[in-house]
Every structure is written in structure tokens, then in C-alpha cells.
Design a protein around this nucleic acid. Structure first.
Length: 826
RNA sequence: GCGGGCAUGGCGGAAUGGCAGACGCAGCAGACUCAAAAUCUGCCGACCAUAAAUCGUGUGGGUUCAAGUCCCACUGCCCGCACCA
């Protein structure tokens, strides 16, 4: 029987019956936790991206298994989330029903792929036995002070009367009704990821992750070294006081404290509470109007750097702590409330944004830095070199030194200090949505916010809920859910109606797999210690910032709670590339360029499809889909089958004591070169070159068959090695060949991965290129162990040498061992 | 605007600073065949009738005995961040 999808089924059945891929923690071999990012159970069948990620990581994992590792390779589903809910709103099918059905379909398809997942360790985030621990984790974070509530702006669609997640806002408009989205303040739950900003940054260099991904995380965290300096405030002619009766300090963060003497106004974010308190009665109407106007501007427009800056005077003044100058305080939406202190000191002479703003509103512009003393550089002068001018006692100081001088002076009376700021914000995890983990908090009139006692977990997500969006959290309308008693005082109380961001679900799932059925604790410490952290994590680059950052944060928080004893959840990370449509664009239904794996898999079989995915693309690059190469793999598989058939009639592959003929030695060289290269390449996720090397081996075996000194045992020996090398990519076929055609013992995946023999890679003579001034002129054969002097002699003695030299003199002779010789001639 | 990545035949793609184009697809020629398919063998960057020579890894410079690879500037595409003070 030649290879087809029937062979896939045959071995899938056998593997399942014999429990070949069941994980045994006590099996010998170093543990290796190999994990692909779990997927969202969508309605459609597995798409090309799933195949590309899962089948090839599975090949890698099979390779590692054959190398002797004890592989833990689980799979699960990121099952909560918006698509199921939106699908339900459209069709009326309950998210739970559609999700469970989709999970069943995907499980079946993943099995048909022939992957080594151990389904005993499966998890789905929408199941109470998982989200119970999601809730438990929330409470622990709350107890640790890492989960807190605050008022924050959300995306609000006035037409649908609902809050939208960022990803539902498309070009500033609601993805459903196309209306303009506005911002609105709501009280929400946050996780305090900013507490870990510095550590998240510090641990990056030691991770075996793509540099690009580390860079994205570095930018996302956005560490900025600067200074925090303070002004006092005059409102209605009087100094504003803080709650202790001292002068109110208006603090600003700046990276350019050297320009401090050039401050001519101060700007606050219009939506901040501070802005309201600074605004005088005369200016109140104008400021309020401005605040309303900017709240209607969507984030995309607001963040656009090309948008003309606008603002309004608050009526108050800031008093410069060094020169006593009274400068106006403005409200403008180019200042972001959430970054730094939400207040900016403006130095129009040395900042483009401030310069534009000052020019527009007629504010003062004072030069305080010059490229050299007395220079009249064009303003704004933003170069990072120069000396201070117009800065009183600081005149003449080099600008970088001036930062220390000025901040040092301010520090003597408590009005300034060096400060590090991060762009990273706390993680807003509240969602006014149905299909997610209920937030396990109770709101009591007397006791305030109280966590649900651990014994009452999970807080079950009720089934019968009206989740059509109308402006409220769907759970808020479910009285049976909302009503409860306060765990502290026993009085009637209300549950939190929000659910958690699904990124919470996926921020610790890798730690649940090893102990997925534990109903007593989130996981047993002993099991985690044995299996975690994840050794190889594979998934799309789109998760470079969010998912991977959140997971790292939760891991560190768990460590600080004593739940785990490592700092990082994923030691080594690989991103697969993206397979584009045949037209070179991202696949999408609207473009009509999607490619469904199913018909290919049914026609050619899983192994051909998998091997083609391995061969046709550079794994981490991806690229446009093209199916012409599938024929090539079919042919390749056919050649392997043909060789196996010939080998099957040979009784033994035992070559002990066999003296290899010249031709056999040549083949032996190719074999061991192939073993070395394939091992190396699979290890690095360079699947395409692995397959290329095997194709070369097949060509060499083909040649050997015509050898006059053909030895059948040696032939079978080489074919068996080939089958072992190919097994990770074409698991069904190679199992079939190994057991049923060659008559070896089940299973090929219990066999040891071939190791190369360094002795077989040593050749007596090698051919090297001879260059003159870097240009290849001819080639010579030399003994492989020849030193430079010997090579020089051979080269000079070659008949082609004089002609190539063309009368020039030899200046220098360079021999690169085993590669080439270069003659520098003049 | 800032940061990062990429750019190699008709195509997918190979090349620890050391013979560019491995391996394959497509194409061409041949063998087998009555014929076709399948299979096998050979050729296959450009210029050129052919060979030799020459030119060739987005563009222009540079470092080096030697550059697809390292450095500088630029162009195009992709990704991330986006008024971060």
C-alpha cells in the first residue's frame, strides 16, 4: 500500500490504542516542555496557520523525543472571548454551545494532523475547572495589592451603547455600526504590571528569544530617564495649598531639565482631575467646552502627530522655583494624562511641539541653549549639544552637565529629583462582556469591595443571560447572578458584573497543563518544579507585546507569592512566519485569497502536506502560498517508498565488520554529512534545509545502487537511517515503512535518533578553489590535512598557475583551511 | 515622526567574512514508450551564434587578501510604537 491518507488513519489509530504519546513524568530522559500557543476554537476547520505552527513544532518535538528527551507536549483552547459572543449575537447560538462544538471539531482535526499531543492534559479556559483558578489568581493578586480598581477612560460607542475593546475599534469607529467611538470614564479593574516594569526589562537579555521580540517589549515598557521637577501654583492671585496646608507642588516629568530656565508655560491634560482644580471660574466654561470637544476626538486622531495642537488657558499660573517667573497653565490634549504626572513644562525654544503651540497662541519663547555661547541658532533648537544661555547662574554649562546642576539645585529645597519613567501602563482587565471569567468580587454597601471566599469558587458564569449589548455588562441584568450576600457582614450584596480580559486566561495556562485536573489547588508545586518553565514556546509574532508580556508579569507575580520558583515562563521562543495568500497579501475572507488545508490533506495525506510546509518556506519567514511544491514532495515521498521497498527484500542492515568499497565510502560520507546537517537544522527550526539534505541523500543512494561493488546490507542500512531522519516530518509514512515494510519493531518513534560519525566525514583529498586577488581562477586537489606551505607548493606547481598569474608577482599567499587559497599578486 | 526587519535567477528559497544561486518548482533536451502519463538522465543567472572574457545578491560609497554577509548614506516593502515631555 503506497502512502495515502489511509496510512495516516491506520497509524493514528495504533498510536492512540498503544498510548504512544502518553506523557510519563517518570520516563527516563531529560524533561522537555514543548508548547505551541493554544488557539481560539473558531468555527471553521484548522487553517493554514494552525498547520504551519502545530505540525512543524510537532516535528521538532518528535525529533527531540528521538534524541532521548522526555517530551511534555500538551494542547488546549483559549476558549473565552469576543468572537463566540458576536457570533451568538448574530445567530442566536449560545457561546458555550458553539465553543464546545468547535473544540470537538478542532480536537478531531488536530488528531488527524498526527501530532504528539497528550490529550489527557488538555485544558479549555471556558471550563469552570479552569476559570475557577483564574478567579483564585485574581483574588491572590488583589490580596497582594496587584489588582486594584480605578476610574479610567474606555471606548464607548454611543449608538450601540456599549463599551468596546480596543480591537473592536477600527479606524476610530465601532466595528459593528461604524459610528464614531468616544472616550468615557468608568471604574475598572487593573493589574499592576508597572510594579514589574524594571524587572521585565532586566530579564530580557538572558532570554533565548528573537531579538526583534525583545526589542518590541523594550519599546513597550519604554523606560525613560529624566527628572521630576515642581512648580508652585497661583490661582486667583493666591498660592494653592495641598491638604496639609503646604504650597501645592505641581510636578512635571522632563528629560530636558537643562532647559528648565526656558519654561514659559505649563500644560495639563484636559481630562485630568488636576485640570479641573486648576481652572478658575472665569475660565471654567471654556475649559469644560474644550474637555468635551477633545473627548469626542478618537484616539487615532488624538495621537496623530500631524494634527494641529489645540488648547485653552486654565486661568492659573505656575511659579518657576528658580527665577520666580509666573507662567500660564494651559490645558491641551497633546498631553497624555496617563504618562508621567500628566503635566508638562513647555520650553518652546527647544521643543517642536511647544514651539508650534506657543507660536499659535502667542506665548513667550526664550532661548536657553545655544550650540555655542552667543550663537543665534534657528528655533526651535532641539539638537542634543550646546551650552546654556539666558539661564542666570547656569550660563555656560554644557547642557548634559546642566541637568545635574539644575536638578541638584532644585533638590536642595525639595523641588526636583532624578526620576525614571515608564511608558508601560497598568493592565486594564475589566470587560463589560458576557463570555469570559466572572470577576470574583462582591460589592457590599457597608464593607466595600470584598473578594469571594476561596471555598465559594468558582463563581459560575450563568448560562441564561441576555448578552445583546445595550450599554450594561450582560451579567448586570442577570439578577440570580448579581444578588448575593456579603462574605464579611452577611448582608445582601451585588457581584461584580464584569468579566476578565481573555489575556488573563492565557497569561498562566502553561502552568496549568502539568496539573490540569487538580481541583484542590491551582497546580501542585512539585509538578511545576519538575516540568516548568516551558523549554520551547512557538507561536505567532503578533503576540510579541501583549500575551508574552502579560505572561512574564504573572509568572513574576506568582514567584513573589511563592507559587513558583523561576523568573520567566518561556525560556526559549520561536515565532513561525505568516503564510500569505497566493497573491502575496494576508489571507482574508474579504480578499477571497484564503487557502484551505483540508482538500490538500485529503488528497495528498497529512505527511505530504506537513513535509511540504517544512520544505517550501523558511520557517520564521513564511511567505506566499503556492502549491506547485506539493508535487515535488509527493515525488520525494515516492522515492523514499521505492527505496524502502527495495530495502525490504534485504534481510539485514547489519554492517559490522563490513569493509566499505570506494562507492560505499562516498555514500557513507553523504549519509553522515546529512545526519549532521539535519540534526543541526531541525534543532534551529530550519526545516527547509533539513529536507533539502535528505533529498541529496536520496540522490546519493540512487547513484550507489548502480555501483559495481553494491552491498545490499549497507544499502538497507542507509535507507533505514533515512527513514529515521524523515520520521519527524512524515510520521505516518515512516512508521508504516519502519514497522510494516521493513519489519522493524514498533515504534519508529522509540528509536534513537541517528548520530553522525566524525570519522566518516574525513576525506583524504579535498578540492579547493585557487583565487588570484579574490577571483577564482582554477581548482586543485590537495590532501585534506595539508598545511599552508604544502598547499602553496601544490598550487605553484599546478600547470594553470603561471597562466593565471599572468606575469604578476606574488605578494602574499593565503590558505583558508579546507576552503580555498588566495594569491595576492601585483 | 521614532524604532526594528527584509531586499539574492522566471518562482520558492540556500550560503560560520572564503568557489553566490544548495535543494526544489517551472522550462529545455534525451532515454524508456506505438503514443502519452509516470519514471530516469543531462542542461538551466545575464551578456554571447558559440566559446573565452566580462558583468552579476535593491542603489551609491567604504573596510578587507576576500563582502550577499561588516560599516556609512539612500530607495522600496513589511512589522512595531506613535504628541511619552
Amino acid at each position: 500500500m503506497s502512502y495515502s491518507v489511509d496510512i495516516d488513519r491506520k497509524w493514528q489509530k495504533k498510536w492512540e490504542e498503544t498510548g504512544l504519546y502518553k506523557f510519563d513524568p517518570d520516563k527516563e530522559g531529560e524533561k522537555l516542555y514543548c508548547l505551541e500557543m493554544f488557539s481560539y476554537p473558531s468555527g471553521a476547520n484548522l487553517h493554514l496557520g494552525h498547520w504551519y505552527n502545530y505540525s512543524l513544532t510537532d516535528s521538532w518535538s518528535r525529533f527531540k523525543r528521538m534524541q532521548g528527551y522526555n517530551i511534555f507536549h500538551p494542547m488546549g483552547f483559549d476558549a473565552f472571548g469576543l468572537p463566540a459572543e458576536n457570533y451568538a449575537i448574530k445567530t442566536g447560538i449560545h457561546p458555550q454551545d458553539s465553543t464546545l462544538k468547535n473544540i470537538a471539531t478542532m480536537e478531531k482535526q488536530l488528531k488527524e494532523m498526527g501530532a504528539t499531543f497528550d490529550w489527557d492534559y488538555e485544558l479549555a479556559t471556558c471550563m469552570p475547572d479552569y476559570y475557577k483558578w483564574n478567579q483564585w489568581l485574581f483574588i491572590k493578586l488583589f490580596e497582594k495589592g496587584l489588582a486594584y480598581r480605578k476610574n479610567a477612560p474606555v471606548n464607548w460607542c454611543p449608538n450601540c451603547k456599549t463599551v468596546l475593546a480596543n480591537e473592536q475599534v477600527v479606524d476610530g469607529k465601532c466595528e459593528r455600526c461604524d459610528n464614531e467611538v468616544v472616550r468615557k470614564n468608568m471604574t475598572q479593574w487593573f493589574f499592576k504590571i508597572t510594579d514589574y516594569a524594571q524587572e521585565l526589562l532586566d530579564c530580557l537579555p538572558d532570554l533565548d528569544w528573537p531579538e526583534k521580540t525583545k526589542k518590541i517589549q523594550t519599546n513597550w515598557i519604554g523606560r525613560s530617564e529624566g527628572s521630576q521637577v515642581a512648580f508652585t501654583v497661583e490661582k486667583n492671585g493666591e498660592k494653592l495649598k495641598d491638604e496639609n496646608g503646604n504650597d501645592l507642588k505641581l510636578e512635571v516629568f522632563t528629560t530636558r531639565a537643562d532647559t528648565f530656565m526656558g519654561v514659559t508655560y505649563v500644560v495639563v491634560a484636559p481630562e485630568s482631575e488636576l485640570c479641573a482644580s486648576l481652572t478658575t471660574d472665569e475660565c471654567k466654561a471654556a475649559v469644560e467646552e474644550y474637555r468635551l470637544a477633545t473627548s469626542k476626538v478618537n484616539d487615532i486622531d488624538r495621537m496623530s502627530t500631524t494634527r494641529e495642537k489645540t488648547g485653552v488657558f486654565t486661568g492659573s499660573y505656575a511659579i518657576h522655583p528658580l527665577n520666580g517667573r509666573k507662567v500660564p497653565i494651559w490645558a491641551a490634549d497633546y498631553v497624555i494624562a496617563g504618562y508621567g504626572t500628566g503635566v508638562v513644562m513647555a520650553v518652546p525654544a527647544h521643543d517642536e511641539r511647544d514651539f508650534d503651540f506657543a507660536t499659535k497662541y502667542g506665548l513667550d519663547i526664550i532661548r536657553v541653549v545655544a550650540s555655542e555661547p552667543g550663537a543665534e541658532d534657528a528655533l526651535p533648537y532641539c539638537e542634543k549639544k550646546g551650552v546654556l544661555v539666558n539661564s542666570g547662574e547656569f550660563d555656560g554649562i554644557e547642557m548634559h552637565a546642566a541637568i545635574d546642576a539644575i536638578v541638584g539645585k532644585l533638590a536642595t529645597f525639595g523641588m526636583g529629583e532624578k526620576k525614571v519613567n515608564y511608558r508601560l501602563r497598568d493592565w486594564l482587565i475589566s470587560r463589560q462582556r458576557y463570555w469570559g471569567t466572572p470577576i470574583p468580587m462582591i460589592h457590599c454597601e457597608d464593607c466595600g469591595v470584598v473578594p469571594v471566599p476561596e471555598s465559594d469558587l468558582p463563581v459560575l458564569l450563568p448560562y441564561d443571560v441576555e448578552f445583546t449589548p445595550d450599554g450594561e455588562s450582560p451579567l448586570a441584568k442577570c439578577e440570580s447572578f448579581m444578588n448575593c450576600t456579603c462574605p464579611k457582614c452577611g448582608k445582601p450584596a451585588r457581584r461584580d458584573p464584569d468579566t476578565m480580559d481573555t489575556f488573563v486566561d492565557s497569561s498562566w495556562y502553561e502552568l496549568r497543563y502539568p496539573d490540569n485536573r487538580n481541583d484542590k489547588e491551582i497546580f501542585s508545586r512539585e509538578k511545576i518544579d519538575r516540568l516548568c518553565p516551558v523549554d520551547k514556546y512557538v507561536g505567532g509574532p503578533e503576540h510579541a507585546a501583549m500575551h508574552l508580556l502579560y505572561s512574564r508579569f504573572i509568572c513574576k507575580a506568582m514567584r513573589d507569592m511563592g507559587l513558583v520558583d523561576f523568573d520567566e515562563p518561556f525560556k526559549s521562543l520561536v515565532h513561525q512566519g505568516i503564510i500569505l495568500g497566493p497573491d502575496g497579501n494576508r489571507m482574508s475572507k474579504s480578499r477571497g485569497n484564503t487557502v484551505a488545508p483540508d482538500e490538500y490533506v485529503n488528497k495528498y495525506g497529512s505527511d505530504v502536506f506537513r513535509t511540504y510546509l517544512a520544505f517550501g518556506f523558511a520557517y520564521t519567514e513564511g511567505g506566499p502560498w503556492s502549491d506547485t511544491g506539493l508535487q515535488a514532495i509527493t515525488k520525494f515521498i515516492g522515492r523514499v517508498e521505492k527505496l524502502s521497498e527495495q530495502a525490504s527484500s534485504i534481510a539485514s542492515s547489519d554492517i559490522t565488520g563490513l569493509k566499505l568499497s570506494r562507492d560505499a565510502q562516498d555514500l557513507n560520507y553523504v549519509l553522515h554529512y546529512t545526519i549532521k546537517a539535519v540534526t543541526n537544522d531541525i534543532d534551529r527550526f530550519q526545516f527547509n534545509t533539513s529536507i533539502a539534505r535528505m533529498m541529496e541523500l536520496i540522490n546519493a543512494i540512487g547513484k550507489y545502487k548502480d555501483s559495481s561493488e553494491f552491498n545490499e546490507n549497507f544499502f538497507r542500512y542507509v535507507v533505514e537511517k533515512l527513514v529515521l531522519l524523515l520520521a519527524p516530518f512524515a510520521p505516518h509514512l515512516c512508521e508504516d515503512i519502519w514497522c510494516d515494510r521493513l519489519g522493524n519493531e514498533y515504534s519508529v518513534f522509540n528509536c534513537k535518533w541517528p548520530e553522525f560519525d566524525p570519522a566518516a566525514l574525513i576525506k583524504d583529498t579535498i578540492e579547493i578553489a585557487v583565487q588570484i586577488n579574490g577571483k577564482v581562477m582554477f581548482k586543485v586537489d590537495i590532501p585534506s590535512d595539508a598545511d599552508q606551505a604544502a598547499v602553496e607548493e601544490i598550487v605553484k606547481a599546478d600547470e594553470k598557475f603561471e597562466k593565471a598569474l599572468a606575469g604578476r608577482n606574488i605578494v602574499k599567499f593565503i590558505y583558508v583551511k579546507g576552503r580555498l587559497a588566495n594569491v595576492v599578486a601585483k
